[in-house]
Simulated scan of single mutants.
Amino acid sequence: MSNIGLIIEEKSADIGNFLVGRLLPFREKRAVGPFVFIDHMGPAELKDYQNLDVPAHPHIGLSTLTYLLEGSIFHRDSIGSALEIKPGAVNWMTAGKGVVHSERTPEYLRTTDKKLHGFQIWVGLPKHLEQTEPTFHHIEASQLPVWEEGEVQFKLIAGEAFGKKSPVPVHSKLFFIEIKTKTAQKISIGQDLYGEAAMYVLDGTVNADGNTYGSKQLLIAKNTKLCEFEMSENATVYLFGGEPFDEERFIFWNFVNSDKELIDKAKVDWNDQNYEAFPLIPGDDKEYVPLPKAVLNRK
């Protein structure tokens, strides 16, 4: 019997002035382990007059993970963080009770042609940490565990697996893994995974249970212990997953929480621009993304 329980097709979503491919949440699968939201950005070729500009916007009850394959993004937040993320590095921001951040093309790239490609991910927080103080961590590419087994290259971007641990300070048991092949290879890693798991095929193809899968699909496994598949030559896949939470996580716009009342409060605080709940971003406080009226009215 096939171990692929669900196939989610990547769908286009507009995040303001940039289209992304949305993988999670999906109507039949709201989360995979603690992962509640996954956007695949690009690959996009941006002209000298095109830039990524996501103004100040809020989050609660989650951690954001940004991982780039190409291009560059300048991150600012209400904690005071201000830095550029480049391919291979990880930005990990824990919103907790509330944080505001912006994401823009760096100044030195704004008048040149550029590329942008990567993942924007939200990870839910354990219930006891949903109201924690916000934090931000930047982990350089050189700090992530990378190793080879034959002609297969592994990178542990976040979490724990294969007896290794990423320095990204996650708050629950999870994994985010990159696997690359030079030649066609059979991969058997079920003994190293746990909880729930999903696979995204970036390049090449994957054969599982006699079926071949390509890009723009998120494959949800029925059982991580049966995680075996064949990768084509020059293929790249990403595995997401981990232990799911006991409580349901609700998502309304940019807010994630197990308590709907905290989400409703966040809606009002952001709509009213309550700076005690959502402080201004130093260096980027001239504009913000307003709360959609449909979100404000939704209960």
Rank of each mutant, 00 (worst) to 15 (best):
M1A: 07
M1K: 04
S2A: 07
I4N: 06
G5K: 13
I7N: 01
E9V: 00
E9G: 06
E9I: 08
S12N: 08
R22S: 01
P25L: 04
E28S: 12
A31R: 11
V36T: 14
L46P: 10
L52W: 11
L52C: 02
G61W: 01
G61R: 04
L68R: 05
E70Q: 15
S72L: 13
F74D: 02
I79R: 12
G80Q: 01
A82V: 05
P87F: 08
T94F: 05
K97Q: 11
V100Q: 05
R104M: 14
T105F: 02
L109M: 14
D113Q: 09
D113Y: 10
H117L: 03
G118V: 02
V123K: 05
V123Q: 08
V123S: 06
G124V: 11
P126T: 10
L129Q: 13
E130S: 07
Q131R: 14
T132S: 15
P134W: 11
T135D: 06
I139K: 06
S142V: 10
W147R: 02
G150C: 02
E151L: 13
L156Q: 06
A161D: 06
F162I: 04
S172L: 07
I177Q: 02
K180R: 14
A184L: 05
A184W: 00
K186W: 09
I187Y: 10
S188L: 04
Q191D: 14
G195S: 07
M199Q: 07
N207Y: 02
D209L: 08
D209Q: 09
D209T: 09
K216V: 00
K216P: 00
K222I: 07
N223W: 05
E228Y: 12
F229V: 05
F229S: 01
E230I: 12
T236H: 04
Y238M: 13
G241S: 03
E243D: 08
F245G: 03
F250I: 15
W253A: 00
N254C: 10
K260L: 15
L262S: 06
I263G: 04
D269F: 10
F278G: 00
P279A: 00
L280M: 12
G283D: 05
E287I: 02
L291Y: 03
P292G: 01
R298V: 07
